[in-house]
């Protein structure tokens, strides 16, 4: 996420991270042979969905205003 400047890539990297966290939970749940890991993964999934929806809507707005998807272009709150 730190490397790519395109906002889409940033969001994709975010998804990967969430997925990885969910994977860890599920593995833990399978280790102890309990359902809790999968439950938590479900919650993560729900959260990821909401976040992607809002995030992509934001990306569309940004593109409409700034005409670019450069994460570094969105640096008006500086100094």
């Amino acid at each position: 996420m730190l490397v790519r400047r395109n906002l889409i890539f940033v969001l994709m990297s975010l998804e990967v991270m969430l997925n990885a966290a969910g994977l860890a939970f599920v593995v833990a749940g399978a280790r102890w042979h309990q359902a809790d890991g999968q439950v938590v993964f479900l919650f993560i999934l729900a959260m990821a969905g909401a976040e992607v929806a809002v995030g992509l809507a934001l990306v569309r707005q940004i593109y409409a205003r700034f005409r670019s998807l450069d994460a570094d272009a969105l640096s008006e709150m500086r100094g």
């Binding site: 996420m1 730190l2 400047r5 940033v10 994460a71 570094d72 969105l74 640096s75 008006e76 709150m77 500086r78 100094g79």
Partner: peptide, 17 residues
């Protein structure tokens, strides 16, 4: 300190990491 406030997301994420 003012220089560290670049307004760039990647920079802030780097800080978090």
């Amino acid at each position: 300190l003012s220089e560290t406030q670049t307004g760039r997301i990647r920079w802030y994420t780097f800080g978090v990491a």
